[in-house]
């Protein structure tokens, strides 16, 4: 065996070893990486896309204080789980006319604390940093850069249906998350 053919053989073996090693690593790595990446292309946690029934419109009186109602989704899918009757949060409802009402998210746009209604002073107040909002949700004072976020409401057969929406925290612009 000459030196040349010996080093050729070694080079060949080296190449084979790398190819085999790489092939085996790829055969293991590709399925593993594909599996790990799977959730990235999926909706793993469903939000309630369908409007949520908040009960009859007549529970609200024109001119009365806003009413805080829990927003409960019929079902949320989260990975393998299907959870029924999930409390998503709450909304303040105000009757505006015989056939309509408005809904405000009770999540403060500043840092997402849950705001309350002060019936004496007739304004919304955030307990965390004391942002104040007037009954229509407009910002009055405080660190919040925008007014309370309105939630879309439709009235059907005398019942209130609300589409649950969450907005990005902070900022003066309202961007859905």
């Amino acid at each position: 065996m000459s030196d040349d053919s010996g080093s050729d053989r070694r080079a060949m073996l080296r190449l084979t070893a790398c190819a085999l090693g790489g092939g085996i690593a790829a055969a293991v790595g590709v399925p593993v990486v594909r599996m790990l990446a799977d959730p990235a292309s999926k909706i793993t946690v469903t939000g309630p896309s369908a409007p949520i029934d908040l009960g009859p419109l007549d529970r609200l009186k024109i001119g009365a204080d806003p009413v805080s109602v829990p927003v409960v989704a019929k079902e949320i899918r989260d990975g393998w789980n299907a959870v029924q009757q999930v409390v998503l949060g709450s909304a303040y409802l105000t009757r505006t006319s015989a056939g309509d009402c408005t809904a405000l998210s009770s999540v403060c746009p500043h840092l997402a604390c849950t705001i309350g209604w002060d019936p004496g002073k007739r304004h919304y107040v955030c307990p965390c940093h004391e942002s104040l909002f007037d009954p229509s949700g407009e910002r009055v004072t405080g660190p919040s850069e925008r007014g309370l976020d309105p939630l879309p409401v439709t009235i059907k057969d005398g019942r209130i249906y609300l589409t649950w929406t969450r907005y990005r925290m902070g900022g003066s612009k309202r961007e859905p998350v």
């Binding site: 070694r10 073996l13 080296r14 084979t16 070893a17 085999l20 090693g21 085996i24």
Partner: peptide, 13 residues
């Protein structure tokens, strides 16, 4: 390396 390594890898493959 590399002669025995190749044999090992062939067996593993």
């Amino acid at each position: 390396w590399p002669a025995q390594t190749v044999r090992n890898l062939v067996a593993v493959a």
